[in-house]
């Protein structure tokens, strides 16, 4: 029977919710294969306690690897520990979220374990072999069905394509991965992180994303207009590559083929042309709103509601209308459509 090992990620001393869709994928995979899955938690010296948070998803075993060096796991050390945990659990597959952590570490771990890898898997294909999966290619212009030759592979899972994992009544056993911390690779040294405090919901799991492009002009305008609207809606802020390159928004807000992939219930695109690279990161959103001065902008082809307008007027007006319409606020002065 195959064993699938899911590697989870930490934010601080908690399991990152954004890495849980990897468990959802594993649950479906083992259901199809009649296999079992284990979970691996990599963390600093306190990993043991943290493992307890992962025991209710139906994993056979939750493996904890703790060492000072894993408080900020580098790809070198994380991949080495995955290799050891795969050996300890007898796993033939390794699964993780397609986050910056997973995209960094999983290919290295796949090579150490001599496995093929399906990047950015979005679905299990309905195929009798159970070895076919779907993934986007060419900036999402093509959906490919790929096949692995055996039931042995690594997978990075596109979080926006999978819901949260099922909880299970049975609890997993918790075990330690045995290893000598001194033997972990030491060619990479973690120096520092520059991670701004998050006051808004996580971009990749937010229900609403307000996103902006090049015409926002400067960082102050970007934050005032889009941040203001996002806060009114309880949403997150996103950006195009052009906005990030131009210094209007920090890199962690970039949405697209080479940035983050989001699928919120509502995506508001202000001053965004709708390049294929940007669409790749947001076209699976529930409802898309586009605000653009150019009536022929490609973004309108994917928008449910298109407003041809100058964002410098339309966005503040939208924010005002919505905040005055909130419960407890004075009744909005919305004109009734004629007819």
């Amino acid at each position: 029977m195959e064993v699938v090992l899911v590697v989870l990620e930490m934010t601080g001393e908690e399991i990152a919710p954004s890495s849980l869709p990897a468990i959802t994928f594993a649950q479906r995979l083992v259901e199809r294969w009649g296999a079992v899955f284990d979970v691996l938690v990599l963390a600093g010296p306190r990993a043991g306690g943290i493992g307890g948070a992962a025991i209710s998803f139906g994993a056979r075993t939750v493996w904890c690897a703790s060492a000072d060096a894993l408080a900020h796991p580098t790809a070198d050390s994380a991949a080495a520990v995955c290799r050891l945990a795969m050996a300890a659990s007898g796993a033939s597959c390794l699964v993780g979220a397609a986050s910056s952590f997973g995209k960094d570490m999983l290919p290295r771990a796949a090579e150490l374990a001599d496995l093929p890898m399906v990047s950015d898997v979005i679905a299990l294909a309905p195929d009798a072999s159970g070895r076919r999966f779907q993934r986007p290619m060419y900036a999402g212009n093509i959906t490919a069905t790929v096949e692995i030759s055996e039931r042995a592979a690594a997978f990075s899972v596109r979080a926006s394509a999978f819901e949260a994992p099922r909880r299970s009544a049975a609890q997993s056993e918790v075990r330690e991965v045995a290893f000598e911390a001194a033997n972990l690779p030491r060619g990479t040294e973690w120096i520092s992180a520059d991670a701004p405090m998050q006051t808004r919901p996580d971009l990749t799991s937010a229900r609403v994303v307000v996103s902006g492009g090049r015409p926002l002009r400067d960082a102050e305008t970007f934050e005032r207009l889009l941040g203001g609207l996002a806060d009114t809606l309880g949403g997150a802020v996103g950006a195009t590559r052009a906005a990030v390159d131009g210094g209007l928004a920090p890199n962690e807000l970039q949405i697209g083929q080479t940035g983050k992939v989001v699928a919120p219930a509502l995506y508001i695109a202000a001053g965004i042309s709708g390049s294929v690279q940007h669409l790749a990161g947001m076209k699976d959103s529930g409802v898309i709103v586009a605000i653009n001065t150019d009536p022929d902008a490609p973004i309108f082809e994917v928008a449910d509601y298109g407003l041809v307008a100058d964002l410098h007027q339309a966005v503040p007006e939208l924010t005002r209308t919505l905040s005055s319409a909130r419960p407890g606020a004075p009744a909005p002065r919305v004109e009734k459509p004629q007819g």
Binding site: V118, R132, N141, E150, I288, E301, D304, A314, T321, V334
Partner: peptide, 29 residues
């Protein structure tokens, strides 16, 4: 050990409509 067996265009989104004002947008949403 990994091969592409099929490629297809993803399902395209249903085309939406234009709204004439912020007020119309808000009521549509």
């Amino acid at each position: 050990r990994l091969s592409v067996v099929r490629m297809e265009a993803p399902e395209s989104r249903r085309r939406g409509r234009r709204v004439g004002s912020v007020a119309e947008l808000v009521s549509a949403l």
